[in-house]
């Protein structure tokens, strides 16, 4: 029983990481349809922001918390810049966007190598987050718990922004009918850029969180990017709740499979499960039904 619980919690932990890295994509890919392969490098930018801050401010673990806003800003700004320079010219060609942003991701990785060096670096976690927490005989890693909290908090914040603020209403209007939104006086270009800014900023937040569970390096983003896209694909385009459910489901599945087989076999099995799932729901878990062709 404890094994099952432990394994499920490990899965929830993996799911929280997946959710956090995929959350920005639910905006840029899910809402705007942009396949941004440089999203992984925005995560990296957030992680390096935390690293720089920790070295220059005080060197203790608490600076990770302080790093969240600047990481959001740094990654968001790079994202908005990318949108302005390239992505907006390619809205009609989603597959080309994928390749172009991959070129950008190559350059950003090299930039990180030139600035911070090729070897991985580490941040120091706050003492509070280094140990384990025991609840009812189940051992929970404190850092995973913190990531889970951050992920849920981010989802909550994003939901509130989309539901309640004028900006959120504009974002949803543009997604549902761009032309109508435009003639209704919404500056769609600005909404696009803002959406991209928030989506990329969330990658920065994810980057700070990832420093708790692994090293910071130029290629850290590539390890997560494909999994993050899979979460959005399975969750369903434009549906936040789909991504949330999917992230945790994939996390638990991965962890259970890892326990019963090996990490590498689990990876393949999860992919097989995803392809099988898409047989049942090709548009993902939640879809917006429309009448339009194609």
């Amino acid at each position: 029983m404890t094994v099952v619980l432990n394994q499920s919690f490990t899965g929830v932990g993996i799911g929280a990481v997946l959710l956090l890295v995929a959350l920005g994509l639910t905006l840029t890919f899910g809402q705007m349809g942009v396949i941004n392969m440089a999203h992984g490098e925005f995560i990296m930018a957030g992680a390096y922001t935390a690293y720089v801050l920790q070295r220059s401010v005080d060197g203790t673990g608490l600076s990770l918390l302080l790093a969240l806003p600047p990481a959001f800003l740094v990654a968001g700004t790079i994202g908005a810049l990318l949108e302005w320079l390239l992505v907006r010219r390619l809205y009609a060609r989603p597959l080309d966007t994928l390749l172009v942003t991959w070129g950008v991701s190559l350059m950003l990785q090299q930039l990180a190598r030139d600035v911070f060096g090729a070897p991985n670096v580490q941040t120091r976690a706050p003492d509070l987050l280094t140990g384990n927490v025991s609840v009812a005989g189940v051992t929970l890693a404190a850092n995973r718990l913190a990531i889970l909290g951050l992920a849920l908090l981010s989802v909550l914040a994003l939901t509130l922004v989309l539901r309640l603020t004028p900006l959120g209403r504009r974002i949803r209007a543009v997604v549902q009918n761009r032309d109508l939104a435009e003639v209704s006086g919404i500056a769609t270009e600005r909404v696009d850029r803002t959406t991209f800014f928030i989506g990329s900023g969330l990658a920065g937040v994810a980057g700070v969180a990832l420093t708790l569970v692994g090293p910071i390096g130029p290629t850290m983003g590539t390890n997560y990017i494909v999994d993050a896209f899979l979460v959005v694909v399975v969750g369903g385009i434009g549906q936040l709740k789909g991504s949330v459910i999917t992230a945790f489901a994939l996390g638990v599945l991965q962890s259970v499979l890892e326990y019963s087989t090996t990490v590498s076999v689990a990876k393949v099995a999860v992919l097989v499960a995803i392809v099988a799932f898409l047989q049942w729901r090709p548009q993902g878990l939640y879809t917006l039904r429309t009448r339009s062709l194609a």
Binding site: F29, G33, I35, P94, L95, L98, V226, D227, F229, L230, V233, T262, V263, S264, V265, K267, V268, L271, I274, V275, L278
Partner: peptide, 21 residues
Amino acid sequence: GAYFAILSQALAAALSIWLVG
């Protein structure tokens, strides 16, 4: 479209991870 591209990419990742394992 994008879904297919991402799935085929995931397949590449999965195979290389499996081989390493």
